[in-house]
């Protein structure tokens, strides 16, 4: 690791000033779990680090207008432990609980995780299915983006160099919604997903009123499966319908081969796990898949 200057601003404004004055040579650091590894491998060699650790007011969890506002500095484990999140967005608690180990979760922040932008991460998959937005602030103001537009490519997001991610906004699910996040870990419990899938389902009179599906680890970013959703919306969730819709998700898969599986295998598994996530969500929505 190369040597660097270290700054610890205590407010968002101070942090924004530093980002501008230190420019391209500086990097923001939150939990450090993603960045420091990259620095150790010399993939990034910042001359200055601007730590958000001492910035106040960025780690809150706030619920208003049917949305949960999660501060960028909120750490993964805090979300897992939060009673409100467990009650209002159990899908998020379930998802964040599957990230790495408790040692990582205690440091990794929600904002750091989103800006990190590794397609193998877990949270993005469920946040996509939850229609989350992120808000970004620079000295010229705040903008809010849907997560799907925020994610751009491998380790690439729409954040600008002069911006800070301030929070994520997640609409609360209706009480009768079913949900599931499945992380496929064929090697060991401590790994990134070979593939993952999230589903949200709302049933009315046995018909799918709302279906949202996303998968991870099988494309440059987590992906929302619109065609799958379209095929199921307004339909009865028969095994055949679910299978056909899940198969469709495979068209969106564009994985790379690595130690967790070949590209071909991951693509097949997208079909399996999208379907299983839907099945589990439906089960939780009180409507086990017809015919089972």
């Amino acid at each position: 690791m190369n040597s660097f200057e270290f700054f610890a601003p205590t407010s968002v404004d101070e942090a924004l000033d530093l980002i501008v004055s230190k420019g391209e040579d500086a990097k923001i650091v939150a939990g450090g779990t993603g960045l420091v590894n990259m620095m150790k491998q010399r993939l990034v060699n910042p001359e200055a680090l601007i730590s958000l650790g001492a910035v106040r007011g960025l780690d809150g969890l706030e619920i208003s207008d049917g949305k949960v506002r999660i501060g960028a500095l909120c750490n993964h484990q805090a979300l897992v432990k939060s009673a409100e999140v467990g009650q209002m967005l159990p899908l998020l608690a379930e998802t964040y609980s599957k990230v790495a180990t408790v040692r990582i979760r205690n440091f990794a922040t929600v904002g750091g995780g989103l800006v990190h932008g590794d397609p193998n991460q877990d949270p993005q998959v469920s946040l996509l299915a939850l229609n989350a937005d992120v808000s970004l602030r620079s000295k010229s103001g705040t903008r809010t983006l849907p997560l799907k537009d925020f994610m751009v490519d491998y380790y690439e997001t729409a954040i600008r160099p002069d911006e800070l991610l301030i929070d994520a906004l997640v609409p609360v699910l209706p009480n009768n919604a079913g949900y599931a996040y499945l992380k496929f870990l064929p090697r060991t419990a401590d790994d990134y997903a070979t593939v993952s899938a999230a589903a949200v389902t709302v049933l009315e009179d046995g018909v799918l009123k709302d279906v949202r599906v996303a998968f991870g680890s099988a494309a440059p970013t987590a992906r929302r499966c619109q065609e799958t959703e379209r095929m199921l919306t307004g339909q009865r969730p028969t095994p055949e319908a679910l299978r056909a819709a899940a198969e469709k998700a495979k068209d969106l898969a564009d994985p790379v081969s690595d130690g967790r599986g070949s590209a071909a295998y991951k693509k097949e598994m997208v079909g399996v796990f999208v379907r299983r996530a839907l099945e589990k969500a439906l089960e939780r929505a009180g409507g086990a898949v017809n015919g089972r």
């Binding site: 090697r187 060991t188 419990a189 401590d190 790994d191 690595d258 130690g259």
Partner: peptide, 14 residues
């Protein structure tokens, strides 16, 4: 895969 991120050994959960 020259690191334990990619070279996997069993953990207690396994």
């Amino acid at each position: 895969n020259p690191n334990f991120g990619e070279y996997k050994i069993p953990t207690i959960a396994d």
